[in-house]
């Protein structure tokens, strides 16, 4: 019988808080190539991701919306990671890759918060694909 849980969530520490407070890549973009909205299944919060794409490479990525620190920090890290990457590479990312990119120890419930931006990214990439298919 478990009589104690270990403290797995030492989250709100310096590195995490400094990314949270920096709000990296938070904001609207002028003339984005594509965008996608995603709702956090855990709570109903919503974020919007915008991408600027040039020659099948993500030139810029920004996000806006109401979200918790985990969702915000993850969005900052995922958008930062996406910059300069090819669409093919980004399409191949898995949830495990995203957790590795984020690098913080998250509880099961909070993993949903961390994946909101990634799910928006998948949606945006899917949209780009469809638009490409329609054009051709």
């Amino acid at each position: 019988m478990l009589d104690s849980f270990t403290m797995s969530d030492q989250l709100y520490r310096d590195e995490f808080m400094s990314i949270f407070k920096s709000g990296a890549n938070y904001g609207k973009m002028v003339d984005p190539s594509t965008s996608a909205e995603e709702v956090n299944k855990f709570c109903g919060d919503k974020i919007t991701l915008e991408l600027k794409i040039a020659n099948d490479i993500v030139a810029d990525a920004k996000y806006t919306g109401l979200s918790c620190a985990v969702s915000k920090v993850s969005s900052s890290l995922v958008t930062e990671y996406a910059k300069g990457k090819s669409l093919t590479h980004l399409k191949g990312l898995t949830e495990a890759d995203i957790f590795a990119i984020i690098g913080f120890d998250l509880t099961e419930n909070r993993k949903q918060c961390a994946l909101v931006c990634f799910n928006a990214l998948k949606k945006a990439l899917h949209k780009v694909n469809n638009e490409y298919d329609q054009r051709n």
């Binding site: 969530d9 709100y12 979200s67």
Partner: peptide, 12 residues
């Protein structure tokens, strides 16, 4: 301050 962050800190 987001509610989830408050509850996560309380959970700790």
């Amino acid at each position: 301050v987001h509610a989830h962050d408050v509850s996560a800190i309380l959970d700790q």
